[in-house]
């Protein structure tokens, strides 16, 4: 699975806020102008971004291959008609472009994930969302990153325990309830221990934030994002 990898590419050196702004700009343009010409422009931009982050198209494809069947249902739904002739291929055009647009956005998201550490993301969120909501989201996102693998291994152990006791021969609702209750028990136990530890260490709403600063390349990238949005509005 794609995850953060340290490096020294242009993508790694950009400020996380710049990367979020670039993604948002491309998403806004792709949503507002889903025409083939604009999608070609955005494709070129995405390929450059992937290159700037040291990612190959093949790696991105391998990452999102599982989501493709779910995406490709959209053109079928678009072509469906409730009455003769039942299927209208022209209706599939819009959804097909929408699927392509989604693939571009997923590729950019992959570039962000590869080049941005959870700590940088936390700093960006804390600065972008004002006040305590931002602090809560920043702290919470760090905890999600930290506890995801632990809860995953809890759940894996629960399922393995259930399998070796022939739990998979039980009715599906009993099996899932057993899994849910076991997972909740462990989650509450972990939450209580963590809350105690955080209280003991005087968790505050205003810790010293990690350093983040815009460099010249960030202003250039933000300028490019602004120009893209302006062009989409003007043309």
């Amino acid at each position: 699975m794609l995850s953060h990898a340290p490096g020294d590419t242009l993508g790694h050196r950009l400020d996380p806020r710049t990367k979020l702004a670039l993604q948002s700009a491309v998403a806004a343009v792709a949503l507002a102008r889903p025409t083939p010409a604009w999608l070609v422009v955005l494709t070129v931009g995405c390929l450059l971004a992937l290159r700037g982050c040291g990612l190959s198209v093949r790696a991105v494809y391998a990452e999102y291959r599982g989501a493709l069947p779910f995406l490709l249902v959209a053109p079928l739904a678009g072509a469906l008609r409730f009455g003769p002739p039942w299927v209208d291929p022209a209706g599939a055009r819009g959804p097909l472009l929408a699927v392509y647009r989604t693939l571009l956005l997923l590729a950019l998201a992959a570039a962000y994930v590869r080049t941005t550490s959870p700590r940088e993301s936390r700093a960006a969120i804390t600065r972008l969302v004002p006040g305590r909501a931002g602090r809560f989201l920043g702290l919470g996102v760090m905890l999600v990153f930290r506890f995801l693998p632990l809860l995953q291994s809890d759940l894996r152990r629960l399922r393995e325990g259930s399998w070796v006791r022939l739990g998979d021969e039980r009715r599906v609702d009993r099996r899932l309830a057993h899994l849910a209750v076991g997972a909740l028990e462990r989650t509450f136990r972990r939450a209580d221990a963590l809350a105690l530890a955080l209280r003991a260490r005087c968790l505050s709403w205003n810790p010293t934030p990690p350093a983040l600063a815009f460099a010249r390349r960030d202003y250039a990238a933000l300028g490019a994002a602004g120009a893209l949005v302006a062009a989409a509005i003007a043309l």
Binding site: A74, L105, L106, Y112, G140, V144, F145
Partner: peptide
Amino acid sequence: LYVVAGAVGAPVYAYGASGVGQLFSP
């Protein structure tokens, strides 16, 4: 928090996906 964590790269969306792009996918 779940939505924001997924948007900034925690692999928490369906089948371990993540990223802002998912929020604008079908």
